[in-house]
Structures are given as C-alpha cells and as structure tokens.
Design a protein around this nucleic acid. Structure first.
Lengths: 218, 218
DNA sequence: ATCAACCAACCAAATGGTTGGATAGCATCG
DNA sequence: CGATGCTATCCAACCATTTGGTTGGTTGAT
C-alpha cells in the first residue's frame, strides 16, 4: 500500500490528531530546510509546507523559529551520539579499533550531509545555540573516551606513540573527514574534479585511515 | 588629527567624490557583514552604514546584494592566493619546506577568520557563487604545485613516502587547520575548554605540523 | 579660456513583496 | 466540558531594490 504523502508529512486520517507525528514531521522538515538555507535563509512557511501542516503549529509546538532550529540541532547531535555509543572498540586490537573509529567518522558524515550543513551554519554564527543547549554536558562525545582508551592500549602494545593527546587526535580525525565533506563543492571547483563521486569518496576514505594510522605510529 | 570615521568609511572631504575608496569601503564592510551573518543574514542597509555611504551605491557599483557577495568572496580568495604565491619552498630541504607550508596554512586561517566564515557560508549553500566566478581557473592554489614538488623531492631524498597523492595531502593539510578554526566554538563547547586561547592555538599548531610530517614518513 | 552638455557618483525616499508571528475560532480527545 | 491540537486569516515590520532626483568633474566646441 503506497503512501502518497511527502516523506515528512504525518499520515493523518481526516480530522485525526497526532501531535507527536506532527512534531516529528516539523523537525524533519526543519532539519532539511535549515541544512539547505541556514537559520537566516530558512523560511517558516516552507518548513510548514514541507511538513504538510499549518504554519501556526511551529509556534504551537516549538515557540518560534529559533527554538525550532535549536531542536533540530539537538536532534542531529543526539543522532550521531547514539551511533557513537553503539561502537564497541574494546574487543578489537588497537590498530583495528582505530581504523574502525576513523571509518565510522567518515561514513557517518557521508551518510548525514544535513549534520555537516547544520553544524556549518551554527559555527559560522559562533555556535550561540549549542552553547545554551540543554544537553550540553551529555554532548561530550563518547568517541573521545573510546579514543583515549584505544590510544592507551596502542601505546602499551607499542603500535602507537605514547605521548598523544586524545583531544588533538580526536579533532584531527574529525577534521580529515569533515573538511572533505563540508568543503566538497569548493574543493571540487578548485581541483576541477568531482570529489563527490563514489570513486573519489572511496579514495578519500582510504587516505584518511592511512594518514591517521601513520601519524600515530611510534 | 584623529579621524572620527569608522575604519571602513572612505575619508571624503565634504561633497567630494572618490569612487574607488567608496568601493573599497563597501567591499570591506560587506566582507565583515557577510562573514558575520552569511549571505542570507547580511543586511544591505547595514553594509552601507558600516561603509559610511548611501545604500544605493551598493547597486550603483556592484549591481545587487549577491554580486557584492561574489565580489567579497573573490577578494578574500585572491588575498590568500597572493600570500601563497609569496611562499618560496624550493630553497628549503623537503621537511623544512613542508613544515613551512603547513605552518603557513595554519597561520593564515588564524589571522583571517573572515576567510573561514565566508567559505563556510558559501559551502553550505553548495558553492554556487564560486562556481561561476570569473577567475576560477586562476583560483587553483599554487600550494598544490608547491606541495607536489616538495613531496617529489622528499620522496627522492627518502624522507617522504613516494606514493603520495598531492591532492589528498593538500586536502588533509588544509583540513587539519581549517576544521580547528571553523568549528572552534562547537569544539570548545564540547570539550569545555577555550580552544581559541593563545595557548591552545599554539598547541594545535604544533600538533598539526607534527601529525602531518609523521603521516608522510616512509 | 569659457561654458554647456554629459555622465558618473551620490543621496533620500518610496515601493512592494516577503516573513515571522498573532488572533480568533473550530475540532477532537479525555 | 475543559484543554489541547489544529486551521484560516491577518498584519506589522522588515528588506532588497527602484525611483527620481542633485552634484561635481570632464570634455569638446566655440
């Protein structure tokens, strides 16, 4: 049985209510709109249209445009955190664990361009919405702890340097993948090469893993 | 004799004209405004106010808001390209040359936050303005050629791997510095540590150089 | 050398489409 | 029936762009 509605639109029998589905639809529409156009460029009318609901429901359920933006930000953040927590690296030998960690960082950004776009916009503004987000404490990525432990194990086993700062390494791992996606279009323009093509993406993935592992060797 | 005017405002004796100074002032004001608020968030009124000229001059000299944005983008790009061309690496041994190259990339972004901010905004939009910029051909960074040559020399001397792709290495070098600055606020929030402080910036600079040089070793 | 024509630089105010948000009322659920 | 989800309609503020000019420098014919 095919669903004719937009993917984001809540399915609602005539005259029925489903506030949770409405909020989900609004959040999904908002995430897409804010990712495409940023906070300033996004239009509340368009978000409501995409969600298939009346514009006033934005104000009813979220308060105002900026609060909706904050909700979208928090949601994409909690999305990546959830997947990060599902990574189990303790079972793997240090080098394999690190390869999985780096690969995960790369793959997640590849699969979630809206995360990159939203974070880009938020950072250009100076991250004012993330600063006073509720779950800021819980936002600290579990990856840093996983990384710290992996580096420690690798240091003991003699496959990694022993004097590594996990925070610096974490930032570098994130950087090598994030920059490739966030600046993909300008890089493609500069190099006259379509870096978004599957072939180039795969080559970049290999390079990032290789580059990182080599940098960590003793 | 102190000048009471804003730094961006053209000095103009009463009733005098100076179209070039006006355009410079508008470009400077536009760069700052677009960097702070993005294309969508920037206000033409505010740009004119910052430049100390009448709003209509934006239209007289540049055509419209988007053309002014493009001009600002092209200007910041030509700024970094100019400094890149001033780098002479051929005289240095490969490792020293690479250290200088990486250090330059880092320092330039540190000193030019408006470059990072503008590029962030342009990329989130999908880089439509850079795509049809006039000097696209001339935009190809001379750094890639410098890097290619440096890697070749290092490969022959046995201090670098011989199978390195200069484009991938260039992207990685740019990434390690760019991401730190572009995402500085969210990283600071996540780690609860002020990564913009001079101490942290210096530590990052050392890390980036070290990380890169180690990754390139045979 | 003078001056009238011309045009770029400049300005204040108007325009009109857009947009975030408000108001008022209807519908449905518990 | 009271509270909450929801819709239609409205509106004041905002904002990019246009209009309709004035002003000052330059040019070329006299």
């Amino acid at each position: 049985m095919p669903r004719p509605s937009l993917p984001e639109a809540p399915e609602r029998a005539r005259g029925q209510r489903d506030p949770e589905a409405t909020q989900r639809a609004l959040l999904a529409a908002a995430t897409a709109e804010f990712a495409e156009k940023g906070l300033a460029g996004a239009r509340v009318d368009e978000i409501a249209r995409r969600a298939g609901v009346n514009k006033q429901l934005v104000y009813h359920h979220f308060g105002n445009k900026e609060a909706l933006y904050r909700a979208a930000l928090e949601q994409v953040y909690s999305g990546i955190r959830a997947e990060e927590r599902a990574l189990h690296l303790a079972d793997l030998p240090p080098e394999a664990a690190l390869e999985r960690l780096v690969g995960f960082s790369f793959d997640y950004l590849l699969d979630h361009p809206e995360f990159v776009a939203l974070l880009n916009d938020e950072n250009r503004q100076g991250a004012p919405h993330l600063r006073d987000a509720d779950g800021l404490q819980a936002m600290h990525s579990p990856l840093v702890d996983l990384l710290r432990e992996t580096l420690r194990r690798g240091g003991e086993a003699g496959v990694f340097r022993a004097d590594l700062d996990p925070v610096q390494v974490y930032i570098s791992i994130a950087a090598l993948s994030y920059f490739y996606f966030s600046n993909n279009r300008t890089l493609s323009a500069i190099f006259g090469r379509e870096l978004g093509a599957a072939r180039d993406v795969a080559a970049r993935r290999r390079h990032v893993i290789d580059f990182t592992l080599r940098a960590l060797r003793p």
